[in-house]
């Protein structure tokens, strides 16, 4: 009998697959293992995310810079109309608008695409065993790359209007970190729901449309004179403000941060519990 080893086969790290119906502690262990294995495949996650972006614009002249171009056109158009509607100054409004739209684009992208992150990877899921977190990471990385293409527009607008966050800039970093941390359970939660209930992705899409208008994205939160407390129920409001305010040279403040952290904690608990519960069944649903 040949005992030739595969070139990748190292004797000390024997891959072992031991599968059986899960007990509750095993569910938790396996969910963590899934995440750890996905982290080990980080190069695959990056490649998948990058290829997704590249693929959308393959064969076009601008390539992924179409993202930059279309964002620029949109901001220019809205930037001329809305200051007149809201009766605010161009110099104040355009930097605010460009930043808000680009940041919202990332949030909405993660939420919308997260809802189909597992179903979209159907071919991969059914042809080999892969950690499910790889698909979530792919979705997050894809949206980070889109965000980076769009940030160019924000920088340009800030330069034109001589707005600069200055020394407040580093204060946006913890907020962005929290966004990235939240993106993981958001993709796992919505992706799982989207795999089980095929109505979820369209429902999410219309909800995000709704949130775009009822959240202070294209209008400044100060415009709400009454009922400001209702705004705090909107999870996107606090999360948006902890990143946007420092970038516009302001302070996010303790209150917005505690709101964000509470929302994030809820998201993490719900996302992790659901993923633990159904991870082993996901392949059957897709």
């Amino acid at each position: 009998m040949s005992t030739a080893h595969g070139p990748a086969g190292s004797a000390h790290a024997e891959p072992l697959l031991d599968l059986q119906p899960e007990t509750v502690p095993a569910r938790f262990r396996h969910a963590v293992k899934d995440a750890v294995e996905a982290a080990r495949l980080w190069r695959l996650c990056f490649k998948l995310g990058w290829l997704d972006v590249k693929l959308r614009y393959r064969g076009s002249v601008l390539g992924p810079f179409w993202l930059t171009a279309s964002t620029a056109v949109m901001i220019a158009a809205m930037g001329f109309l809305y200051p007149i509607l809201f009766n605010v100054r161009f110099g104040n409004y355009l930097p605010f608008l460009s930043l808000s739209l680009v940041l919202w684009g990332f949030m909405a992208g993660v939420v919308n695409e997260g809802a189909s992150c597992f179903t979209a990877a159907e071919g991969m899921v059914r042809s080999m065993r892969l950690p499910f977190c790889v698909h979530a990471a792919r979705c997050i990385i894809r949206n980070i790359l889109v965000l980076l293409h769009n940030v160019v527009v924000v920088v340009a607008v800030f330069a034109i209007f001589h707005v600069w966050p200055g020394e407040r800039l580093p204060y946006a970093v913890p907020g962005l970190m929290l966004w990235l941390l939240d993106a993981i359970p958001a993709c796992l939660l919505l992706g799982t729901l989207g795999a089980r209930f095929r109505d979820i992705p369209p429902i999410i899409a219309s909800l995000m449309q709704l949130f775009f208008y009822i959240s202070p994205i294209i209008w400044q939160p100060e415009l709400i004179a009454h009922g400001h407390e209702w705004l705090q129920l909107n999870p996107f409001y606090a999360l948006m403000e902890i990143v946007r305010r420092p970038l516009l040279g302001g302070h996010a403040g303790l209150h917005l941060w505690s709101l964000s952290l509470i929302d994030s904690a809820i998201l993490w608990v719900v996302g992790l519990l659901l993923f633990m519960r159904v991870r082993s069944r996901l392949a059957y649903w897709i």
């Binding site: 891959p15 072992l16 599968l19 899960e22 071919g123 059914r126 392949a283």
Partner: peptide
């Protein structure tokens, strides 16, 4: 291949696996 986890019973595999299942292999 570990794609479908057992609903009942147990599957144990030792050694790296290559599964040639789909025509286009994902």
């Amino acid at each position: 291949a570990g794609i479908y986890e057992p609903v009942g019973g147990r599957v144990t595999i030792r050694g790296e696996i290559n599964a040639l299942l789909d025509t286009n292999l994902g």
